[in-house]
Amino acid sequence: MDAFIHISSSLFLLIGSFLCLSGGIGILRFPDFYTRMHAVGVTETLATAMILIGLILYNPDFLVDVKLVIILLMTLFISPTAGHALANAAMLNDKMQKDDNKQNSEVKSSTS
């Protein structure tokens, strides 16, 4: 039974590390901001959950397990909020830049 728990904890940690690395490659590889955000989403949901579940299986102390669960819940509640705020700010900035460019080109066409 002990060996089984040990192996499954190692398995969870391995999957978590692999998902994390995939997210890291995604953030370097994807072409623009919004697609990179999806890559970060992978590392913040399933990868974090897998690594923390691996740690929960690894150690038997109850209080430490409770703390790990608190960290997991906090990450899951925080990541969509931060992601939404970031995407919203980026979208507003894009819109503003587009308007700016339009104004500039209008000014240019009226002066030329």
């Binding site: 919004y34 999806h38 989403g41 992978v42 949901t45 990541s79 909020t81 939404h84 995407a87």
Partner: peptide, 12 residues
Amino acid sequence: NSISLTPGTVTV
């Protein structure tokens, strides 16, 4: 929040 939490889709 559910849309943002599933990777691949983000509410903007």
